[in-house]
Design a protein around this nucleic acid. Structure first.
Length: 640
RNA sequence: GCCGCAGUAACUCAGGGGUAGAGUAAUUCAUUGGUAAUGAAUAAGCCGGCAGUUCGAUUCUGCCCUGUGGCACCA
């Protein structure tokens, strides 16, 4: 009689089975339909091919396409099939790596001629052929020597390199589908037909071998794959919706800003965009005032020597703009505001009684970003930070950090960002400052972070050389993550630039400096807001809050009366007296995302009312003019 | 910076070795109207820049610029 082992299922039931059965067998014992639907199984938390056998007591879960883990496997299988298709169609192409990723998969190929999207149809067709052949995914274990020999002979130099880097006695696993095979850790589904046809190749891109820019560039093909056609369709639809929110498109349509060739990576803010930008600054200024910040402003250009002293030149000199006047001095355009802040701090003797000193600056900085990195407002070469530097004692780091965290979350809430997470980075290998102070700063940030009750992740060793940091990542209305705020402890710069304070004991000491930005880059934050709101800015941010649309020219006078009254109440209002029908005006201003359109005709003029149509609503409501102004002002003050 | 793709009217885009096309917007005229497009007419372009091939280049080739999708980078 064969040995029996215990297996336990997720529902808590357990049973005894013969030792050495594989996933297929186990699924079959449960039901035929399950065995047909099974694509893999989870053994003690690890996902394995159904062909793997169970030798010991285990917790087991049979996976079907309905499980959340399934997509990963489908996509990984799809990557293999794509690689086979490519190698059939384009002999001589070498394969490298091809993982599943969020929403899909990719495979990196080495080929003299890069692929183009014109090749996609052919490749997709071949993939369908392979899937229809329903080849089994067969797992084999090879010795390292065998694998190296095989792939060397095949001319797959990248695979050989990968295998060479594996530990000496590592068992190499190979997955075969028909004639084609790949070095792969698995797991895979039983056969190619399980992949189905709900996949699509999306784009080609260059990608460095092993992600290192000093290596050769490979051609990457991205694809997406789903359980069924509906999921694929939904995903493609979601992409289209995201495209409609693109801040570059909306920025043009709403007449907010533009870019042009002469100033790559620098924004031309149009009146409406600048209004939005200023609203954000005013808002932040107001919030910071309440937290006892003082606002400063520092020079845009300072002698190179200051940047050498601060250490920026050595580290980032390559990415700084410089300029020369007729004298010999070289001026650097500031890439950061902090050295300027320290220089202000240094004016006059500071006492411990002056600390913490919270100095803010809406500083415009310039950084020579690599050309390929530029992207609308999201990545520019000239941007404005809502920066602040908090000079404090070591003992104040914790309380100040907590205050920053509270402020940041409260501010994000006002924009409807309720899903925020934190990334915490602690000391890197190369660093300045005593370990004792690092201990203190790291603990301070950690305490502050934990007090927020937010989800956080740790990035060990990823801190700046001068101190640990927190980064705040917010999730927008369609689930995309944006890193915005940052809080960094700086144990370096104040000392480097000679900032001191006189402590209680009469001794001169070096203060600690906290760098913090909440929006981060105003430009980028504006872009994020445009996409987050899909252009439908809340009324307190909207550049034009109200448009008055007259129905006939007879009512222009009353229209202007309304306009002036609203203007005197500081409402951002425009009037449209053009010779157009009211439907046309409604449509146009709706497309421009104006939050409130007031239609004004004879009736309104007679009764001193306005007929208000709010953006997104099909209906209009009639208000007494004064009442409407009052409610509007009220709404503008309430940010949510 | 690297790989791919793109650049034609204000915008969105079609075209293609031989005088440049559409829709929307603009301008003018008529129309004064009640909540997502009133009608007609007119005007509008160094076809991103510089070279080359050609009798002739917006079209083909090369280089550059800018944008774009990725990769790398992001104090």
């Amino acid at each position: 009689m064969a040995d029996l082992i215990n297996i336990k299922f997720p529902d808590g039931k357990s049973s005894k089975i013969e030792k050495g059965l594989n996933g297929h067998d186990i699924a079959k014992q449960i039901s035929m339909s399950l065995s047909k639907a099974a694509i893999a199984f989870k053994v003690n938390g690890e996902i394995l091919d159904l062909s793997r056998t169970i030798e010991d007591d285990s917790e087991i879960q049979i996976l079907t396409k309905d499980n959340s883990d399934a997509l990963d496997i489908i996509r990984h299988d799809c990557a293999h099939v794509m690689a086979e298709a490519v190698q059939i169609l384009f002999p001589g192409t070498q394969v490298t790596i091809g993982p599943s990723i969020e929403n899909g998969f990719y495979y990196d190929f080495a080929r003299k001629e890069p692929f183009t999207t014109n090749d996609f149809k052919k490749i997709e067709k071949k993939m369908v052929e392979i899937i229809n052949k329903n080849e089994n995914f067969v797992r084999e274990e090879w010795s390292k020597e065998k694998a190296i020999k095989f792939f060397t002979k095949k001319g797959e130099n990248y695979k050989v390199e990968l295998i060479n880097d594996l530990p000496k006695n590592e068992v190499i696993t190979i997955y075969k589908q028909g004639e084609w095979l790949d070095l792969c850790r698995g797991p895979h589904m039983p056969s190619t037909k399980h992949i189905g046809k709900s996949f699509k190749l999306m784009k080609v891109a260059g990608a460095y071998w092993r992600g290192d820019s000093s290596n050769i560039m490979l051609t990457r093909i991205y694809g997406t794959a789903w359980r069924n056609d509906q999921e694929l369709k939904d995903y493609l639809h979601q992409l289209e919706e995201a495209e409609k929110r693109d801040h570059r498109k909306l920025g043009r349509e709403m007449d907010l800003f533009h870019f042009q060739e002469e100033a790559p990576g620098a924004v031309f803010w149009h009146p409406k965009g600048w209004s939005l930008f200023q609203s954000l600054i005013n808002y932040m200024r107001d919030r910071q005032d309440k937290e006892n910040y003082v606002e400063t402003n520092t020079p845009d250009m300072m002698d190179k020597s200051l940047w050498e002293k601060s250490g920026h030149w050595e580290k980032f000199g390559e990415n700084m703009f410089t300029t020369e006047a007729k004298e010999e001095k070289i001026f650097a355009i500031k890439p950061m505001n902090c050295p300027g802040a320290v220089e202000i701090y240094k004016q006059g003797l500071k006492s411990y009684r002056d600390l913490p000193l919270r100095m803010s600056e809406f500083g415009k900085v310039h950084r020579y970003e690599p050309s390929g990195a530029l992207h609308g407002l999201m990545r520019v070469r000239a941007f404005t930070q809502d920066d602040a530097h908090i000079f404090c004692t070591e003992d104040q780091i914790t309380s100040e950090s907590k205050k920053v965290c509270d402020l940041i979350l409260s501010i994000y809430k006002d924009f409807g960002f309720n899903d925020v997470r934190i990334k915490y980075s602690d000391r890197p290998e190369k660093r300045v400052g005593d370990d004792e102070v690092w201990d203190k700063s790291e603990q301070a940030l950690k305490d502050a972070m934990e007090a927020t009750d937010l989800e956080y992740s740790l990035n060990p060793g990823e801190g700046a050389f001068y101190g640990p940091k927190l980064e705040f990542v917010l999730r927008d209305a369609i689930g995309r993550d944006w890193q915005c705020g940052t809080l960094q402890v700086d144990l370096n710069l104040p000392g480097r630039l000679g900032a001191t304070f006189v402590d209680e004991d009469g001794q001169k000491k070096t203060p600690v400096m906290l760098h913090r930005a909440l929006f981060g880059s105003l430009e980028r934050f504006t872009g994020i807001l445009i996409e987050h709101y899909a252009g439908h800015l809340p009324i307190w941010l909207s550049p034009v809050q109200v448009v008055i649309a007259t129905i006939t020219s007879d009512t222009d006078d009353y229209g202007y009366e309304v306009l002036n009254k609203m203007k005197s109440e500081k409402i951002r209002v425009e009037i449209d007296t053009r010779n157009e029908k009211i439907g046309y005006k409604i449509r146009e201003h709706s497309n421009l995302k104006v939050p409130a359109i007031l239609a004004i005709g004879k009736k309104e003029a007679e009764e001193q009312t306005v007929s208000v149509r709010r953006l997104g609503s099909q209906e209009s409501k009639v208000y007494k003019l004064d009442e409407f102004i009052k409610s509007l002002k009220n709404e503008t003050l309430n940010k949510n």
